[in-house]
């Protein structure tokens, strides 16, 4: 059974007539990794908030169509009721700090403490979450003293400590180095094997292609396409960012210089091989 399902769903912010999101049709299985790609203003962050259960209480808006988590409508409960099942990490990591904690360890522990869990369980969760985000060394630091990249690690750790069924990362790596982001995503994949679903909201095609099984492409708030990276290559690269090598392949395909039987390269790792195939027939 699907963990989350959107069907004919659209969202209109209060006080506006034009919908911010429309034509959403997708479902998400437990353990799946989905990437939502789109340029600036494509509605990624709005969708992330919707999936996190913020509509209509924290984000006043009118929803139409079906948007469910498990068997419950997403619009039904207060945001706090979803906290145990869905966690959203946004691009600004400082927004995720509660302002009630004097150390990073206390900040990460704040959520599980609110759930009233046993002390040993909380300590286990905090240690595991900090280790996964490579933030163990920050445990004793004051949250207000963290740099952008450090705060992003802590924000993700705080979300993981809640052990959600669904983790939404809305450009949550923007201040990490690409290498650090890649290794963190690798470790998040291990959690997905245990059943956590992961949704990456991003502007970068390579990152999505590398880590997500499927890609949902948003443009101006509308769902344009949903499918594998290879399938979406031609349409996606007209709208989102990609590294130069992928851009070159895209240009070649647009200009008709690509070999019809060779599939497009979707990650930097496969670029050389694909270009080779095209050159040598």
């Amino acid at each position: 059974m699907a963990l989350m399902r959107f069907s004919g769903a659209s969202l209109t912010r209060r006080g506006v007539t034009q919908p911010a999101l429309s034509g959403l049709d997708f479902s998400l299985a437990p353990g799946e990794v989905l990437a939502v790609l789109g340029g600036s203003g494509s509605g990624k962050s709005t969708l992330a908030c919707w999936m996190a259960g913020w509509v209509p209480h924290a984000l006043p808006a009118q929803c139409d169509g079906t948007a469910v988590l498990g068997a419950e409508s997403l619009a039904g409960a207060q945001p706090v009721a979803w906290a145990q099942r869905v966690q959203l990490v946004q691009a600004n990591p400082y927004a995720a700090l509660t302002g009630c904690a004097f150390s990073v360890a206390a900040e990460v522990a704040f959520g599980p403490e609110n759930l009233g869990l046993a002390e040993a369980e909380i300590r286990r969760r905090v240690a595991a979450a900090l280790a996964l985000c490579e933030a163990d060394a920050l445990a004793a630091r004051h949250p207000a003293s963290l740099s952008g990249g450090e705060a992003q690690r802590v924000a993700i750790a705080a979300a993981l400590a809640m052990q959600p069924q669904l983790l939404l990362l809305d450009e949550a790596f923007s201040r990490l180095t690409p290498a650090a982001a890649t290794s963190l995503l690798g470790r998040l994949h291990d959690l997905c094997r245990d059943g956590m679903a992961l949704v990456l909201f991003d502007k970068q095609f390579d990152l999505a292609a590398r880590h997500a099984g499927r890609i949902l492409l948003l443009d101006g708030g509308r769902q344009v396409a949903l499918g594998g990276a290879v399938e979406l290559f031609d349409v996606a690269l007209t709208q989102v960012r990609a590294c130069d090598a992928l851009r070159a392949a895209h240009r070649a395909r647009q200009a008709g210089a690509w070999h019809a039987e060779v599939s497009p390269p979707v990650t930097t790792a496969t670029v050389a091989a694909r270009f080779g195939e095209v050159l040598h027939g």
Binding site: A83, Q87, P112, N114, G116
Partner: peptide, 15 residues
């Protein structure tokens, strides 16, 4: 939003 996301006040007793 950050407090809500951490289930603040979702239980009467917290640890």
């Amino acid at each position: 939003a950050a407090l809500d996301a951490r289930a603040f006040r979702s239980r009467l007793r917290r640890t």
